[in-house]
Design a protein around this nucleic acid. Structure first.
Lengths: 196, 196
DNA sequence: CAATCAGGATTATGATCATAATCTAAATAT
DNA sequence: ATATTTAGATTATGATCATAATCCTGATTG
């Protein structure tokens, strides 16, 4: 079998990418090492040739998920037809995003787990969420100068909260209402043509 | 040892109360049956004299946590010095609530788990969250009639989102900022003296 | 080309888990 | 008072888990 350095890097990245999906779908404790390796087409044995511990993979997978999420947001902003904020809100609170946590925002999928996680996970989330708030602050309508950050904190909290709640209540009218109502409210309150 | 019917009920309730705390602290998958029984001063063996399965205990514990949370909110509203909405927001986004998930709001502590849970958990959360939104809708300043529910959805999403994020980022300035900023924003936007 | 190294498979290891069978003594029922 | 039921303890059971030791095979290094 191939054991070249290039192939090892590929394998490593493949495990991390798969873990980044599986963890978002099943939670940080919801999927085991053997299962992950099988999903990557490998067996358990090789795992510790790539990672010092399961915890190390969790960290790498979180970094990968966050990298993907920032990338996705950047792409979305680049093609923005409507205002960038409205486009972000519509995508974030779309039924598609709600129904596909495995490729979505790690804050929406794993914040609850991070709250019970170790300092390494929490530091990653702190950096990710701070950057996300800064990003939002750059796209909302800011009437009072110096208020952009505060508005962004509120808007981002609403985004993540509505998404998590929409997932928690299971499929149904309430879930759809949460997405649509929070979406409309955010665009009305912070969109380009907002009052205040 | 006592095995009277009254004592069995007491024991049952004690297990459920302890589970309601432990699950909020460690997550729905974060604590085992044996550990829970030991916390209740018992051993594993008796567990299935009280519950058909671990899942059944999860359901009862969630119901208990939700009952406690509604009770607590009712008490808080009764003694409300400030407006009821401001009092709720300040308590919900207080550092004390952030640091004590085991006695706090089940939506804040377990929504992430519920998103990956079964239909029974999700139905409980749907009923709980719907009722919570209705409660909020009754205490916010409602300028436009027919807008109360929508505003309550947004406000509740912001509450839960800010709390979850404040826990996920770990202790530090960002966590405090999330609580304080979301708190101020909610009171400014939906409090008794709100604009719109 | 020979010797070494290392990626990945196979197979332990020991812990932890939910669930269950058996046993006990106390509470209820007859 | 005797018989029956049952709450809870003790002790299996079998699955699943993270981690590790061993081995094989192909890549790397000299």
């Amino acid at each position: 079998m191939g054991h070249s350095q290039a192939e090892k890097t590929q394998t490593h990245d493949r495990i991390v990418r798969i873990a980044a999906e599986r963890f978002r779908k099943a939670g940080l404790e919801g999927v085991g090492v053997a299962d992950l390796m099988k999903s990557a087409g490998l067996t358990v044995g090789g795992f510790y040739k790539h990672f010092g511990s399961r915890e190390d993979l969790v960290i790498e997978a979180l970094q990968e998920a966050m990298r993907q999420s920032r990338e996705r947001t950047k792409t979305l902003m680049a093609q923005g037809k409507h205002g960038p904020f409205a486009a972000l809100v519509r995508a974030y609170l779309s039924p598609e995003h709600r129904d596909c946590p495995e490729t979505g925002c790690p804050a929406g999928a794993l914040s609850g787990d991070a709250a019970r996680g170790g300092p390494r996970e929490q530091e990653l989330f702190a950096a990710y969420i701070d950057k996300a708030i800064e990003g939002v602050s750059g796209m909302i309508a800011t009437p009072a100068p110096g208020k952009a950050r505060a508005h962004a904190v509120a808007a981002y909290s609403t985004l993540v909260g509505a998404l998590i709640l929409a997932r928690a209540v299971g499929p149904g009218a309430l879930s759809d209402e949460l997405l649509k109502t929070a979406s409309d409210h955010l665009i009305a309150a912070f969109g380009p043509t907002s009052p205040d």
